[in-house]
Simulated scan of single mutants.
Amino acid sequence: MVVMTIVSAVGLLVDDRVLAGAAIWAKPFKFAVSFVVYALALAWMLTLLTRGRRVGRWAGTVVAVSSLVEMAIITGQVVRGKRSHFNHATPFDSALFDAMAVTVVVLWAGTLVIAILLLRARIPDRAAAWAIRSGVVLALVGAGLGFLMTQPTEEQRAAGDLDTADVIGGHAVGVPDGGPSMPFTGWSTTGGDLRVPHFVGMHALQLLPLLLMTLVALAPRFARLRDPRVRLRLVLVASAAYAALTALVTWQALRGQPLVHPDGATLAAAALIVAATAAGTYGALRPSPAPGPDPSGAPEQPSSPSAKESVS
């Protein structure tokens, strides 16, 4: 995928073809970059398994192979100058899209197996355990939202003749694909776009563990963060906020509303999420109460090791 990132970047520079309103090499470039960070995160998480490691290795291999097959089809269609997604123009194009649909299902199933193994793994630091498990579960939700794009749009249903249509499904909601869009991401600026919740959900896999790593890195400078219980509470707040954000952008997209033009209901919901997150963060940063004296007069037991020591 690193190699394909470079190849696609070169394609963006030297190939001026445009397909569905975007540079033809933009899709393989974005997919390659996404697969790089996705695979790195999963590979790191597999090292944390305490049981079922062989199953985890097989699941990781399945994810790698299925993503490779999907990337090969996307790139092959770019070379042919054809759409890779939602393309039913010819039996061959339709067969390629169906094959991609199978690889996505297989990739999702492989990730699900890894998620189950992580839920059963004994990770000493509770904050780390919650960051990893929340991240992989939300990533599965985000990946699953991608299946909404394969369904015929309302406009396609209204036009009829789905059996003979060249394109079935799409990213946009309420407007055709290929219209005005945001730079680089290509997300629609005139209608809803299902790629937004798909992207947000999938990248919880990296962002929530990165949040915890940041908290651990800042702990030497901020006394509150040295307390493992504070870090755990912050991770729980962040996980809930991320889940709420994923739900919000999904709701927004399904109503045919662009990400950059939210209406009053979307803004009100976003404000509630921000307020709840701020309140949760404030509560999480409160110092934990010191343990009281033992009524029996027994000496206090030594505290449990810190998250950093546990990870070491």
Rank of each mutant, 00 (worst) to 15 (best):
W130T: 15
I123L: 12
A109V: 14
A109T: 08
V106P: 11
A99L: 15
L145Y: 12
L138R: 04
A129V: 03
M100D: 10
L118W: 04
A109Q: 02
W130P: 02
L148F: 12
A143T: 14
L148K: 11
D125W: 01
R126V: 09
R122S: 10
W130S: 12
L118Y: 06
L138N: 01
F147V: 09
A121H: 05
V136G: 01
T103V: 04
L140Q: 09
F147Q: 07
L112A: 15
V105M: 13
R122L: 05
I114T: 11
I123Y: 02
V141M: 11
A115F: 01
I132Y: 14
W108T: 08
A101V: 08
V104F: 14
L107F: 14
V106T: 08
T111L: 13
V104S: 08
G144I: 00
L140E: 06
V105F: 09
L145F: 14
I114W: 05
A139W: 10
W108G: 08
A121C: 07
I116D: 08
I114S: 04
A139H: 08
F147C: 00
A139P: 01
R126T: 07
L145E: 12
A139V: 09
I114M: 13
W108R: 11
L119V: 13
T111C: 07
A115C: 08
V106M: 04
G110C: 03
R133S: 07
V105K: 11
V137H: 04
V137Y: 04
L118D: 10
P124M: 13
L119K: 10
L107I: 07
I114H: 01
L107P: 00
V136H: 02
L148S: 05
A101F: 07
I114L: 15
G146H: 10
R133V: 13
A121R: 05
G146M: 09
I123K: 04
L107M: 14
V137P: 03
R120V: 07
V136F: 00
G144E: 00
L148A: 12
L118V: 05
G135F: 01
A115H: 04
G142M: 02
R133K: 02
A129I: 06
P124I: 12
V104C: 01
I116W: 11
P124F: 12
I132D: 01
A109E: 03
A127Y: 06
A101Y: 01
T111A: 12
V113H: 09
A128Y: 12
L145K: 07
T111M: 15
W108E: 09
D125Q: 02
G135E: 03
G146E: 08
V113K: 07
G135A: 11
I132P: 03
L140S: 11
R122I: 08
L117W: 05
V104L: 13
R126D: 10
M100R: 08
A121G: 05
G110H: 02
I123S: 11
G110L: 06
A101M: 11
L138D: 00
S134W: 13
A139E: 06
G135H: 00
I116V: 15
W130M: 12
